[in-house]
Design a protein around this nucleic acid. Sequence first.
DNA 1: AAGGTTTAAAATATCGACATTAATGTCAAA
DNA 2: TTTGACATTAATGTCGATATTTTAAACCTT
Lengths: 218, 218
Amino acid sequence: MPQENSAAKVLLHLKQDILTGFFSAGHKLKMSALKERYQVGVNPLREALSQLVVMQLVQVQDQRGYRVCPVTQAELIDIYDTRAQIESLCVELAIERGDEAWEAGIVAAAYRLHSNAGLLHADADLQAWEQLHQQFHYAIVMGCGSKELLRVRLDLYEKASRYRNLWLRYNAGHDAFDVNQREHEQLVMAVLARDTETAKQLISRHILVPSQVLRGLL
Amino acid sequence: MPQENSAAKVLLHLKQDILTGFFSAGHKLKMSALKERYQVGVNPLREALSQLVVMQLVQVQDQRGYRVCPVTQAELIDIYDTRAQIESLCVELAIERGDEAWEAGIVAAAYRLHSNAGLLHADADLQAWEQLHQQFHYAIVMGCGSKELLRVRLDLYEKASRYRNLWLRYNAGHDAFDVNQREHEQLVMAVLARDTETAKQLISRHILVPSQVLRGLL
DNA sequence: AAGGTTTAAAATATCGACATTAATGTCAAA
DNA sequence: TTTGACATTAATGTCGATATTTTAAACCTT
């Protein structure tokens, strides 16, 4: 059994706690509290925190410890705009480079997402739906075939998660999701038809709409 | 005087040592050797190494320590292709959004780069030229106005540095630089004329040419 | 009472040491 | 000679302790 070092375990847990909002933006991350919560010493904690600093989820002030990066409206807009640009780029390249297996993957992921639309109405499984949603969009962009580009995309996705989690709570039970479903269908059609321009416009809007909702919340 | 913690100092130094090739690809990074070289204990070292793992410059094998990420031709191609895409995107947005101050900055940076072309023939100052080169391209892309996009671009630039340093040594004294100079002039003209398509093609080629030279070296 | 200074408390950053795990070398048996 | 098991060596990962720095609280001065 590959028992990974405790810094890695703490990293995953702490990252989740930040992305889900358990530790809210600007919150001071005291060593004593973190030691208590994750049951590890200071050194693994500092390793995990150092990594989160690189991911820009945590700030470090010298000799003054760590705190969760604050969220701002300017950053929200920037992240979502950039995500829209990067995702568009991925879609463009995927349409250019994708093969038949890629097409099949998209159809399969779209089917799974559509089948489980019911998850949206029960708050408990919102995260499960989000995972299917994520897998659907990944099925499309993976066709670009570039590990680096997909990594950039994932970084931005995770950075946006803190904001998105707000949006998910806000929209639970709202009908914004119906619009969402239609957008997915249109996107699949445009992508499979290799209609680059339409697909790029659709994916861009798909990402930017929640951002506009969120602006009102900050 | 803001005496930053030693992990941060080690990070900068170690990063340079990896990017410049002092620690070559695949090299095992033993704690004892690093302690000796940077004059610090294991904990600051582990912090710095953790951060480099996130930056994908260092790999960690559990209970088997750290080693410099290997370089492969596949990664080289992917990084440079992605850089070309991202830089094109930055240029496109910059042309769309840039103002007069942005234009002035480009002209100034181009002038400085052109004036110091002599640095190319003396090996000692190759890094100085590279810095001017970097500032020139930054002057162009900064017009896009997106911190996130510029950060992505910087990440890729740094990841490419290991490969680029090979290229710089290989090309020292060669006439590939003359071509380089002409490319810069053309790029400035296209950008200032707000000719998006030409500018994108030029910047893409500008990035991809060294990559093709490097393929032969790996 | 307001403001600045000193003192006490808490938190952080680093080191040294220890337990655990992997790598290396040795030796016997096939 | 090669192979496999065992012992030795080396390196990693973690914790507790310490020195330094920041934060706060109390105190004195005006």
